[in-house]
Structures are given as C-alpha cells and as structure tokens.
Amino acid sequence: MAKPMTKTELVAALATEMDADKKTATAALDAITGIITKAVADGGAVTLPGVGKIYCRERPERMVRNPATGEQFKKEADKQVKVTIAKALKDSVNG
C-alpha cells in the first residue's frame, strides 16, 4: 500500500494542476475544506464529482459493551461523518 499523500504534497500537486503558486493552492484547499466542514456540520451533504459524497448521519442511543470488562452501558445518540465513494472512482481504481 502506498503512503497517504500529505497536505504539502497535495498543495504542490494542486499548484501544478492549477498552474499557480503554492500560496494560492493552499488558500484554495483551505477554502474547500472549510466549506465542506461547515456544510456537513450543519447537517448537509457535499458531493465531489468523480470522488464521492460526504454527509453526516445521526446514530440513535444504543447499548454498547466494553470489550475489556464486558460491562454494558448506554451510549448517547451522536453523529457520524460518512463518505460514499463515487462509482467513477471505484471503476478507475479497479481498472
């Protein structure tokens, strides 16, 4: 498995693709990240064409078990961020 791309590497690749400097690419990446974070935190969803859909799902209150002690306890309702990968990306990875 290849190493994950770091933010620095992503900014450099984005700057090359945009034909811009790294400062502009960093600002663009930070803006996109901020928009996605705000939209998902507000309960919405964001679709990145060719990549997938990022959304927030609410989980109900439920009983869970501590694996170390076997003790069961009630876990409060919470939210979970989910990502559904686009078919185009799956197809490109699988050949």
Rank of each mutant, 00 (worst) to 15 (best):
I36M: 10
P4F: 08
M63G: 07
G70N: 05
T24V: 13
K53R: 14
E58Q: 14
E9H: 06
V93F: 10
P67M: 04
T6P: 02
V46S: 06
A25F: 00
G52S: 07
G70W: 02
A12F: 02
L89R: 04
L10T: 09
I54M: 06
T33M: 11
G50C: 00
K79Y: 11
K3M: 09
T8E: 12
L29K: 05
R59C: 07
R57C: 03
E61W: 00
K38Y: 07
Q72T: 15
P49H: 11
D78R: 13
T33I: 11
A39V: 10
V93H: 07
E9S: 08
D19N: 14
A25M: 03
L48I: 13
D42H: 01
L10Q: 09
V64D: 03
I32M: 14
K22L: 01
G44R: 03
L10R: 07
G43A: 04
G43F: 02
R57F: 00
K38W: 04
E9K: 12
S92C: 09
N66I: 06
C56M: 15
F73N: 01
A20K: 12
E58C: 06
E58A: 15
K87F: 07
K38P: 05
A2N: 12
A39P: 01
T24P: 01
K38N: 14
A12L: 07
K82M: 09
V81Y: 05
E17N: 11
S92R: 14
K7Y: 12
